[in-house]
Amino acid sequence: MTVKPFEQVVDEHGPAVLRVCRAVVGPVDAEDAWSETFLSALRAYPDLPDDADVGAWLVTIAHRKAIDITRARARRAVPVHEVPDRPSTRGRPEDWDGDLWTALAQLPDKQRAVVAYHYVAGLPYKDIATITGGSTDAARRAAADGMKTLRATYQQGAKP
């Protein structure tokens, strides 16, 4: 019986989890979500069963962290008089695709999560249903609806 050093888990799954976090909570909060996910994972790692799917396990943790972050953000949100027409898409080059996040942000939370876990993390709908709750079919439908909206809004944004 051998155990993988946690460094190898970070190396193999870190970039994919970052993509998932950016898709689910957006570029601003993604690094906090990633950090909290991997810190929790490190804490629980010695007790992870040998046959566990590490990728799905990490997405499960990231999902809980994303919910915490979204709630915290809602609590600290301050109403503004004028909503800007369009959020800035400028920023540091590593800050992800602003247009894509703008389109993702318009999706209901559940749809955005399901789209990210399937299209970014590559998880099957059966696993996604376990993470988000609900049935496999419901997860599949939410992803289809989310992608339909996303393709319409994001394509529009991409080709003005």
Binding site: L18, S35, E94, W96
Partner: peptide, 26 residues
């Protein structure tokens, strides 16, 4: 068409920064 295809698989500078942060909080 998958809108996520255009995104880079690995974001090196961010990955390094996050790794350093993980070491420090751990």
């Amino acid at each position: 068409h998958n809108p996520f295809d255009s995104l880079p698989e690995v974001d090196e500078p961010t990955t390094r920064r996050l790794h350093a942060r993980l070491v420090s909080t751990a």
